[in-house]
Computed example of a mutant assay.
Amino acid sequence: MGVMLAGGVEIPQIGFGTLQMRPDETQAAVEEALALGYRHVDTAAAYMNEAGVGAALVATGLAGEVFVTTKLRTFEQGYDSTLRAFEASRAALGVDVVDLYLIHWPAPALGTYVDSWRAMARLLDEGTVRAIGVSNFLPEHIERLADEVGVLPAIDQVESHPSFWRPELEAYCRERGIVVEAYAPLGHGGDLAAEPVVAAAERIGASPAQVILGWHLRAGRVVLPKSAHVARMRENLAAAEVAPLLMEAELAAISALNSPDARLFGDPATNVNRQDPADMLARGML
Score class of each variant (00 low, 15 high):
residue 3 V to Q: 08
residue 4 M to Q: 14
residue 9 V to N: 02
residue 12 P to G: 02
residue 16 F to A: 00
residue 19 L to Y: 11
residue 21 M to F: 05
residue 23 P to E: 10
residue 25 E to V: 12
residue 30 V to I: 12
residue 32 E to V: 11
residue 33 A to W: 05
residue 34 L to E: 04
residue 35 A to I: 00
residue 38 Y to A: 02
residue 44 A to C: 02
residue 46 A to Y: 06
residue 51 A to Q: 14
residue 52 G to M: 11
residue 57 L to W: 00
residue 57 L to K: 00
residue 62 L to S: 02
residue 64 G to C: 06
residue 65 E to G: 04
residue 72 L to S: 07
residue 75 F to Y: 15
residue 78 G to C: 09
residue 79 Y to H: 15
residue 79 Y to P: 14
residue 80 D to V: 10
residue 83 L to K: 04
residue 84 R to L: 07
residue 84 R to S: 10
residue 87 E to Y: 00
residue 88 A to Y: 01
residue 90 R to K: 15
residue 90 R to N: 05
residue 93 L to E: 11
residue 95 V to W: 00
residue 97 V to Y: 00
residue 100 L to M: 05
residue 103 I to C: 06
residue 106 P to T: 12
residue 106 P to S: 12
residue 112 T to A: 12
residue 112 T to I: 03
residue 112 T to D: 07
residue 117 W to K: 03
residue 119 A to R: 03
residue 128 T to L: 07
residue 130 R to G: 00
residue 132 I to L: 08
residue 134 V to F: 08
residue 142 I to F: 04
residue 144 R to Q: 15
residue 146 A to Y: 09
residue 146 A to L: 11
residue 151 V to C: 02
residue 154 A to C: 12
residue 158 V to C: 09
residue 159 E to L: 07
residue 167 P to N: 12
residue 170 E to I: 11
residue 170 E to T: 14
residue 173 C to K: 03
residue 173 C to F: 10
residue 176 R to P: 09
residue 176 R to Y: 09
residue 180 V to S: 06
residue 181 E to L: 03
residue 182 A to F: 01
residue 182 A to S: 12
residue 186 L to G: 10
residue 187 G to R: 02
residue 188 H to E: 14
residue 190 G to A: 14
residue 191 D to F: 09
residue 192 L to G: 07
residue 198 V to H: 06
residue 202 E to Y: 05
residue 203 R to L: 07
residue 207 S to F: 10
residue 207 S to P: 07
residue 208 P to I: 13
residue 209 A to Q: 01
residue 210 Q to N: 13
residue 218 R to H: 08
residue 225 P to G: 09
residue 229 H to V: 13
residue 230 V to F: 04
residue 232 R to V: 14
residue 232 R to S: 06
residue 232 R to K: 14
residue 233 M to T: 07
residue 234 R to Y: 06
residue 236 N to P: 11
residue 237 L to I: 11
residue 237 L to G: 09
residue 238 A to L: 13
residue 239 A to T: 12
residue 241 E to V: 06
residue 241 E to F: 02
residue 242 V to T: 15
residue 244 P to D: 13
residue 246 L to F: 11
residue 246 L to E: 13
residue 246 L to Q: 14
residue 249 A to F: 05
residue 251 L to K: 03
residue 254 I to P: 03
residue 254 I to H: 05
residue 256 A to H: 06
residue 262 A to F: 06
residue 264 L to G: 03
residue 267 D to I: 04
residue 270 T to M: 09
residue 271 N to G: 02
residue 272 V to N: 07
residue 281 L to C: 01
residue 281 L to V: 03
residue 284 G to R: 00
